[in-house]
Each structure stands twice: as C-alpha cells, then as structure tokens.
Amino acid sequence: MSDSNTSDFTNPSTFILLGIPGLQRAHVWIAIPFCTMYAITILGNFTILFIVKREPSLHEPMYYFLCMLAITDLVLSTSILPKMLSIFWFNSREIDFSACFTQMYFINYFAAMESGIFVAMAFDRYVAICNPLRHSTILTKRVVVKIGLALVLRGCLLILPYPLLASRWPYCKTNIIPHTYCKHISVVNLACADVSASSYYSLFVTLFVQSMDVFFIAVSYIPILRAIYSLPTKDARVKTFGTCGTHLCVFFASYIPVLFSSVMHRIDNAMPLYLLILMANVYILVPPTLHPIIYGVRTKQIRDRLLSLFTHKKA
C-alpha cells in the first residue's frame, strides 16, 4: 500500500509554493513593498533603455552594458514577482512541474548574467581610465557584442545543468515547497534520492561564478585606483573616481544582500525560516530596484537627459 502511494506521487504534475511559512496572515501586506519595488524596477529600467536608445551621445560601451544590466534586471524580477504576488494576494500557490524548473533556470541564468555584466563594466572602466586614448579602438561595438554573446553562452552552459539534473530526480516525499519561488536547493531537497550531484554542482557554480567575477573586478580596480591616485590634482582624482563610483555602488548593492543571505543560511539553525525566505527574496529583488535609481542619480548624462525630457514635456 505504501509503495503504491509512493509510486503514484512520484513526479507530481504541480508543486505547491507556500509563500512565507509563518507569515501567511501578513502575505497581503508583505506584497505591497514587493509590488512597489517591482513597479520601480519596471519604470526605472525601461526609462534607462529609452534614454540610451534615444540619445546618440550615450551610444557608448558603458551604456550598452548598462542596457544589458537593465534587461537582465527586468527579466530576473519578472521571473519571480508575478507568481509571488499571485500567491500573496490570490492564494494561487500551484505551479506546474515544468514551469517550476523553467523559473529555476531563469532565476539562476540571469543572476549569472548580472554577475558577468559587472565584470564587463569593470573592464570598461579599466580601459577608460588606464588607456583612455585607446578606449574607442579597444571597446568597439563589435567587441561589446562579442562580450554580450560570451556572457549569454557562459550563462547557458553553466546554468542549464540546474534544471536538467533537478528534473531527473524522483519527487515522492511531498510537492510542497516552503518558499515564494522555485529556488534550486528548496526544490531538490524534496527529492527522494541522493541529490549530491545537484548540490555539489550548485556549490561549484556559486564559487566559480561569483568568486571568479569578484576576483576579476578586484584585479581591474587595482590599476584603476593606481591611475586615479597618480593624477596631479584632487579635483581630477575626484572627477575620475566618480566615473567608476557608480559601478562600485551598483556592484555593492547587488553583492552585499547576497553575502548577507549566504551568511544567514550558514547559521540557519538559529534563523527562523521566514527570515531566510525574506532574505532570499530581498537579494534578488532589491538590486534591480536600486540599479536604475543609482545610475539615474549618479550619472550626469542620464540625469540631464531625464530632466530635459520632463522639461521638454512641460514646455
């Protein structure tokens, strides 16, 4: 009888996303700040794309990479928020088996893309500050396109094993996922099999992608800071550092929540589950909200174009 029930339950057609266990009564209210962040993400990143497309003077490598980041942030947020809001507001907790693994792929793929874009931005700042006379010849449009394609290919190759491995495991324990989205580790932990292959590969990708990208960014900024420090005047140093300060702000806005969430998961025995799930949402959803704000406030070219756009409309 037990074997029959287990056999019937293996690989269910749907999973059930619980949302935030322990805070179900507050789901309606928790959804409000998340919905607000999503609206800011949509408005801010589409504004960045619109301004860069409209202004020929912004057709430079720095802004091409910024557009890549904006598109990545839009897709990353959209892969999570609509389903999350349907859970919080309409109690629509079911997600199709294949849709769950598709969501898993999109989340991890575009997170890897975002990390790679930060490396590309750091390389752009390195060339602009350390080899300014060769910037236009090194980072041509063709080179930028190749970098973009390399990031796309890297993401595909690294992340595709996530859903391929996870979808092969038999799921006969339960189909209830105590989360707001199909997080990789939360899904594979439901399998009634040895999932060490998925766990080890996930750890490898995390260490390889994030650690290597942080390493390359750090290596890029060592000669950048040396070049800035060697400038003759304080004003020149401040002005030059300002050109890469925005990139650093965006980088830290993305990696600090990830680092904080990782530390919390390492001490998960002392952390309530709802806090871990909230942090898992924050480190994915907050950076796409902050990125267009940071670039809009700190980048003079974008700020001026945005102000002129509104001034022109009022006139």
Results as ranks from 00 to 15, higher is better:
residue 191 A to N: 08
residue 4 S to D: 10
residue 89 W to P: 05
residue 189 N to D: 13
residue 227 A to E: 08
residue 16 I to L: 01
residue 107 I to H: 04
residue 187 V to A: 03
residue 31 A to C: 10
residue 226 R to H: 14
residue 312 H to I: 05
residue 52 V to F: 00
residue 82 P to R: 08
residue 35 C to K: 04
residue 61 P to M: 06
residue 108 N to D: 12
residue 230 S to P: 04
residue 173 K to W: 00
residue 313 K to A: 13
residue 137 T to D: 11
residue 178 P to A: 06
residue 82 P to H: 03
residue 193 A to S: 14
residue 89 W to T: 06
residue 59 H to R: 10
residue 282 V to P: 02
residue 237 R to P: 01
residue 276 L to N: 07
residue 24 Q to V: 03
residue 192 C to P: 01
residue 272 P to F: 01
residue 35 C to H: 07
residue 13 S to Q: 11
residue 37 M to Q: 03
residue 208 F to W: 14
residue 259 L to A: 07
residue 139 L to V: 09
residue 313 K to L: 13
residue 81 L to M: 12
residue 275 L to K: 08
residue 279 M to H: 01
residue 232 P to S: 15
residue 211 S to R: 07
residue 235 D to Q: 11
residue 77 S to T: 05
residue 224 I to T: 07
residue 48 I to M: 13
residue 19 G to I: 05
residue 58 L to A: 07
residue 190 L to W: 02
residue 64 Y to T: 10
residue 302 I to A: 04
residue 42 I to V: 09
residue 170 P to R: 00
residue 51 I to E: 04
residue 228 I to V: 15
residue 172 C to Q: 13
residue 203 L to D: 14
residue 199 S to P: 00
residue 5 N to A: 15
residue 1 M to Q: 13
residue 172 C to M: 07
residue 81 L to V: 15
residue 176 I to T: 11
residue 40 I to H: 05
residue 93 R to W: 01
residue 113 M to F: 05
residue 184 H to F: 15
residue 148 G to F: 11
residue 255 Y to Q: 02
residue 27 H to I: 09
residue 138 I to A: 05
residue 188 V to F: 03
residue 18 L to A: 13
residue 167 S to H: 06
residue 36 T to A: 04
residue 260 F to E: 06
residue 20 I to C: 06
residue 223 P to S: 15
residue 171 Y to I: 03
residue 8 D to E: 10
residue 150 A to G: 14
residue 202 S to D: 13
residue 313 K to E: 10
residue 160 L to Y: 14
residue 65 F to W: 11
residue 243 T to M: 01
residue 239 K to W: 03
residue 291 H to L: 13
residue 199 S to V: 11
residue 95 I to R: 02
residue 35 C to T: 13
